[in-house]
């Protein structure tokens, strides 16, 4: 029986879909059987990030409405054998899948896969509630911005109310130089507010933009720093202890020293 993990954030545009795709790729690279579920019905993107858009025949709405069986709707990744995608419907909306139905789909997928990653839509309404319904664990994605952190905090509260007690945090799109100058929230500040386990930090990387457009997740790119960060996060997600990425650590220490010396506003 595999684990169902929802990837969510509250705020839009912080990198939920990219994170889902890259964690899925990384875990599949580690030899796990992975199912990715796009729960963003009506605004589907995960298929594009994975470069699988042109293979979609059935989708998650067809599955819950009984037009096809679950296995027919799964799209096998073109690069990795262990990875498959259950795409969202584009011509429907969030009301097409209820939390109960999503719970059923996730349970079915968890039978044949080690990890089921559910890409949640932005927001706190039904789309999010359905996406999280089948999950036991949650990955919260945020960026070092006050707005994103505020929304993440809200989501963590909602998840707790739904019974997901220990969500884990990915801080996306951090720019070390800006943090060093004190122009960007640093990891310590974010952890201070959210008080959840840090899974990892992903540096801003131009490769991410290109890979999203091309449908080739950065996790497959050996030279991308963001790709490396995602591969490390995937290993932590499955319980390995991987030291935080170099830049994450120095920044943390430096930040602490700066604050001690009073050079930097906290």
């Amino acid at each position: 029986m595999g684990e169902v993990i929802v990837v969510t954030s509250g705020k839009g545009g912080v990198g939920k879909t990219t994170t889902t795709a890259n964690l899925g790729m990384s875990l599949a690279l580690l030899g796990h059987r992975i199912a990715l579920v796009d729960a963003d019905i009506g605004l589907r993107n995960l298929d594009i990030v994975l470069g699988l858009e042109n293979r979609i025949v059935y989708d998650v709405v067809d599955v819950v409405e009984g037009f096809c069986r679950l296995k027919q709707a799964l799209i096998k990744d073109k690069r990795l054998d262990g990875l498959c995608l259950l795409p969202a419907a584009q011509t429907r909306d969030k009301s097409a899948v209820s939390p109960d139905q999503m719970r059923g789909v996730c349970a079915d997928l968890a039978r044949d896969h080690d990890y089921v990653l559910v890409d949640s839509p932005a927001g706190i309404e039904q789309g999010f509630r359905s996406a999280a319904a089948g999950a036991r664990r949650a990955v919260i994605v945020t960026t070092p911005e006050v707005m994103a952190v505020r929304d993440a905090d809200r989501i963590i509260g909602l998840l707790e109310a739904m019974g997901i007690r220990e969500p884990e945090l990915v801080v996306n799109r951090i720019r070390p130089a800006m943090v060093r100058r004190g122009d960007m929230m640093d990891i310590e500040d974010i952890i201070d507010i959210l008080a959840i386990e840090l899974l990892g930090v992903v540096p801003e990387d131009d490769v991410m933009l290109v890979s999203g457009n091309r449908g080739e997740p950065a996790a497959l790119n050996g030279s991308s720093r963001a790709g490396e960060a995602f591969r490390n996060i995937a290993r932590r997600l499955r319980g390995e202890s991987v030291p935080l990425y170099e830049l994450e650590r120095t920044r943390g220490v430096l930040g602490r020293i700066r604050r001690l010396v009073g050079v930097e506003r906290s």
Binding site: N54, R55, V57, Y58, G66, F67, C68, R69, K71, Q72, A73, L74, I75, K76, C84
Partner: peptide, 19 residues
Amino acid sequence: PIDEAPGPLADACEPLVEV
């Protein structure tokens, strides 16, 4: 081949659609 939509299917078959 994608098999018939509502009909029964041997669950052992290769599940994933190749287009």
